[in-house]
Design a protein around this nucleic acid. Structure first.
Length: 576
DNA sequence: GCCGTTTTCGGCCCGACTGTTTTCAGTCG
């Protein structure tokens, strides 16, 4: 069993317990455990083998025993017993927006419905409206939610898809008279790799006009709810968007409340309670009934709690609150720290622009040096370079350096295939001619864990390989990538000085945040590259920087922040 | 079911909005 399977079963158990009407805190314990394993970044089997399951936040003796049972027997008796009580198909019904555990149980108990198909039929026949607490309106709403689910599904969208939509909506809301601030919140502000829905936050004295504009935006398909401070819409793409509007004096509490993930926020509110306040998006309210305290800035919120300011990208309850207490938060890498891009393609392989065009565009971006890393021969679909063509390209690289140097430097590089059999695409003497060698996987990603890990290890252990690009090869939101043993990969990278990439393309963001954090904790250096195939792609860099921040990465961990000499010195020291 | 400068037992955040209700339950974030 893999992490994903354990996560899946714990989440299902939580839903089943909720439908059964179990105690809420027990349910939350299963959800919290699932979340914790999902963001663990390590193979749960390895953690189990080390006897360290209970060191995972939210895993106690009971859940550790359940995980052990799953990992050793492949099943869980508790789950199977529960499934007899609460059919898994009921859990499936909860995916319908607006349908929670109570309603599902009621529908099941009173109408004998236990599948989505039966539910749809009952709604169409007008049977749901007869239930207590239901009416014609609820029934119609449920029916359209079922249809929306079948059209759009309920999967999360990649950060790169949600981002421009949110910016476009913000631009429109900023035009509304009386609006003083407008920003994204939620997982989008935390720059999580995938986004469930978009949160927009606006400061304005009167919400009325903002709401009017919001619900009339072109992208909006349906208005799901609308009140004096909050509105929720669904876009044509199926993506949900929430808008909150409060006066500017409450901006700090508003932003704080709608940025942190659930666990981060709960901890902040618990801290506030211990200090005698109830904390909400509106204010700190003294429990003894005194006047409420407003915060116009987030800094004000954190300082009142005795904490250093926590950057949005860290607000995931992964130790940042504890670090903020002791003022030991890392100084995170920023976009401005980046001075190079070490992974890009030209028309020699599957890029669209010439060597000179890419180099000039990079220089205009303010970069000091770049590596041209066209694909190698065996990736035929990307017009990979034979040894002969690789050497021909070197002529153009030299020309570019003659024209653009000496303050700008183009490195002669490759993105070399790690073939399905584990061999590398160029022989060592060819690699030796190059300034910078990337190795990466594009094929055989679904090989068994041991096999694909061995392939990667053999590349890392080749002294000519300087960096591994997009290690797992995942493509968001649906292709999970290779099942690498990241403990082994990171250990090998640390031992050989091999750089691991955070690929900034929002379809990749690979390394993902938790693996970047594991890597730097083991002393592995990180690169943040765009994998540009055209000049516009350089604009994706901020997604990579944000992912690095989510991994607690500082500027000194990232080779792209180094001057050229320091970088060249580092890769030459680790060659052979 | 987890967890501990409140506790090994008894806590475990805060609010908006809807549709159905005459005061609130359910869902969502």
């Amino acid at each position: 069993m893999k992490n994903r399977d354990v996560v899946d079963i714990f989440n299902q158990i939580a839903d089943m317990l909720a439908i059964r009407g179990d105690q809420i805190h027990r349910i939350l314990a299963y959800r919290r455990a699932a979340e914790s394993i999902e963001t663990l970044g390590r193979d749960i089997n390895t953690v189990y083998a080390e006897g360290k399951l209970t060191e995972i936040p939210g895993i106690g003796d009971t859940l550790a025993a359940k995980i052990e049972e799953m990992l050793t027997t492949g099943k869980l008796e508790f789950y199977e017993k529960l499934a007899k009580d609460v059919p898994p198909s009921l859990v499936d019904m909860m995916r319908v927006e607006g349908l929670g555990p109570k309603r599902v149980k009621q529908i099941h108990d009173l109408l004998g419905i236990s599948t989505m198909a039966e539910l749809t039929a009952a709604a169409r026949e007008g049977k749901l409206r007869e239930l207590p607490g239901m009416g014609v309106k609820s029934e119609a709403k449920l029916l359209s939610a079922i249809e929306a689910l079948s059209v759009h599904g309920d999967s999360r969208v990649p950060l790169g898809v949600a981002w421009p939509i949110a910016q476009q909506m913000l631009d429109a809301l900023q035009q509304v008279p009386g609006v003083t601030r407008a920003a994204v919140g939620g997982s989008l502000r935390r720059m999580k790799d995938t986004i469930g829905d978009i949160d927009l936050l606006v400061a304005a004295e009167s919400a009325e006009q903002v709401m009017d504009r919001f619900v009339q935006l072109d992208l909006v398909e349906t208005v799901d709810s609308r009140g004096p401070t909050r509105a929720r819409v669904t876009l044509l793409t199926g993506l949900g968007v929430d808008l909150r509007v409060l006066p500017i004096e409450r901006w700090g509490t508003l932003m704080a409340y709608f940025t942190g993930n659930k666990d981060h926020n709960v901890k902040l509110r618990e801290m506030a309670l211990k200090m005698g306040y109830s904390l909400s998006e509106y204010s700190f309210t003294p429990l003894d009934g005194g006047a409420e305290i407003l915060c116009a800035s987030e800094e004000g919120v954190y300082s009142r709690l005795g904490l250093a300011y926590i950057p949005p990208t860290l607000r995931e309850d992964r130790g940042e609150i504890e670090a903020a207490k002791t003022k030991s938060l890392p100084v995170l890498i920023e976009l401005e720290d980046i001075r190079s891009d070490l992974h890009m393609h030209t028309e020699w392989s599957d890029g669209k622009y010439s060597v000179m065009e890419m180099a000039k565009a990079a220089r205009e971006q303010g970069l000091d040096y770049i590596a041209l890393t066209d694909h190698s021969a065996s990736l035929g679909i990307a017009n990979g370079l034979s040894v002969e063509r690789l050497r021909q390209r070197a002529v153009e690289v030299k020309e570019a350096n003659d024209v653009l140097g000496p303050k700008f430097r183009v490195l002669q590089g490759t993105e070399m295939e790690i073939r399905a059999d584990g061999s590398l695409d160029y022989p060592d003497d060819v690699l030796e001619e190059l300034d910078f060698v990337i190795a990466s996987l594009h094929t055989g990603l679904s090989q068994p864990r041991e096999q694909v890990t061995q392939r990667m290890l053999s590349a890392i252990n080749n002294p000519h390989v300087d960096m591994i690009a997009h290690p797992t090869g995942r493509l968001l939101p649906d292709r999970p990538g290779a099942d690498l043993d990241m403990d082994a990969i990171i250990a090998a990278a640390a031992a050989t000085g091999t750089i691991l990439e955070i690929n900034a393309n929002p379809a990749r963001l690979d390394l993902r945040d938790v693996h970047a954090r594991m890597a730097i904790e083991h002393g592995v250096k990180i690169a943040i590259n765009t994998d540009a195939h055209q000049p516009e792609d350089f604009g994706l860099r901020h997604f990579g920087v944000a992912t690095a921040q989510r991994g607690w990465v500082t500027a000194s961990d990232v080779v792209n922040t180094w001057p050229l000499e320091q970088f060249l010195d580092y890769i030459s020291r680790n060659n052979g």
